[in-house]
Design a protein around this nucleic acid. Structure first.
Lengths: 244, 244
DNA sequence: CGTGAACTTGAGATTTCTCAAGCGGGGTGG
DNA sequence: CCACCCCGCTTGAGAAATCTCAAGTTCACG
């Protein structure tokens, strides 16, 4: 169950057997999640980091009048609140599915970060990649059309899912509604719906009942102006989990 | 000259005298910058981190057809490419002014991060705060009007400048053009211009010749729906540099 | 006094939004 | 087993925000 965390850290520089064991040992307990549950709440000053071991979640902030911005989607292997180790949380993370969260005591993580520089590098990298994804979303929201933004998001998710071995026959389970999609891209639900129809109409993808199917990868990449460089997966040693 | 780096790291948790000296000693050499110079270039896999000691800069990416998205503005004390320590750079950082950049050899920084956990925490914090700022910009671009977005950016910059002692009588030097402003907020230059006029018309601020003057702080905060929490400055021990 | 960059203005075009209504299917209570 | 209900999806149509193109102005600088 914990292996996806190891995989995620390892993605960007292989760890030794001992180091992998240390990473596995970080998770001292697990909790199951239910749909819609808040896994991390604004204002939290937690004593543990939460790692998503199974299921999916999204990071978001809601403004006083109800406008919502989703800032990221999370898949197994992702650390949900490394920030909580150093700063209070300034947003929420909510479960999209039932799943499982691992708890990593801050004290234990601090010891490991000090004692195992290569593991610390793994955490640094994932944290910096998350920031790179934020920047890429900024480029999308600032400078791309709705059409390209949607295509780009699906490209990104497919690549991330694939790295965790969660893509089969160009399909992956991605159980968000069109409203989630809108709130992540800065669009209205109506416009998202119509734009999604255009993407379908071009034969690029299908997306229904929480299942994303990429029908034309080159076409989708082109539509989204997608270049996976910012995910920094090419800086990977090996990708044992990769499926396809 | 190096003190703003120390101040920046210290903002989020005081360092001992020895630790401060270690931080100061990180910068082994400095280079002066000219306006428009690229300080960090996409594709770089640098051997040093660059710290902005004096002057200002912006982080951005330009798409093949010329659309540009600015992702952050940088002021003295900011580390420009901590990412380069762990990943290749995926965007550029360009100087807005003449100034000075300090070089920190990666090897030296790695040693210090391993040997001085409290300094490492300082770097973690600044890195996570940068990510928090990215998220806040996403909220703006996704869910705020042009009017609120502009107001919000100016609020953010004033608060950040103030923390570095760079605000005097509610004025600060912020030498960006309306085009920079547009590219950071995802707007056209024309619309930015007109919206800026509206903000001026409300008596909230003045912004010309690269000087920002806040005329009505409560009004500007309200216009920008600004809450400084995401900058995490309230988690500060003390703020010796703060001016006003 | 000429020049260029930045700023400003006008006006029509486009994207995207909002409001409002209708559809469809899965789950649940009767 | 069926009817109802709710949530998510879809559609229509007018409104608003924002963009683009194009021209003109201002001002610092040489």
């Amino acid at each position: 169950m914990v292996t996806r965390l190891t995989a995620n850290l390892q993605l960007y520089g292989a760890l030794s057997g001992e180091e992998q064991q240390v990473v596995e040992s970080l998770v001292t307990s697990t909790r199951s999640t239910v749909v819609g549950e808040d896994l991390v709440v604004e204002g939290d000053a937690p004593t543990h980091c939460r790692v998503l071991l199974d299921g999916q979640a999204f990071r978001h902030r809601t403004l006083p009048d109800g406008r919502r911005q989703i800032m990221s989607f999370h898949i197994p292997g992702d650390v949900l609140d490394l920030q909580g180790m150093f700063l209070a949380m300034d947003h929420n993370v909510t479960a999209l599915t039932t799943g499982e969260v691992g708890l990593v005591p801050h004290a234990r993580l601090a010891d490991v970060l000090e004692g195992y520089p290569r593991i610390a590098r793994g955490f640094w990298r994932t944290s910096l990649i998350e920031a790179a994804i934020f920047r890429e979303w900024m480029v999308g929201m600032g400078r791309r059309t709705a059409y390209a933004r949607i295509a780009h998001l699906f490209c990104e998710m497919i690549v991330r899912f694939r790295a965790m071995g969660m893509v089969h026959q160009n399909r992956c389970h991605f159980p968000i509604t069109q409203q989630h999609l809108s709130d992540s891209l800065g669009l209205s639900a109506v416009h998202t719906n119509r734009t999604l129809q255009a993407l379908r109409g071009e034969g690029l993808l299908s997306f229904q009942h929480g299942e994303l199917v990429v029908l034309d990868w080159p076409g989708l990449k082109a539509a989204g102006e997608f270049d996976a460089g910012y995910l920094h997966q090419s800086e990977i040693a090996s990708l044992s989990l990769a499926g396809g």
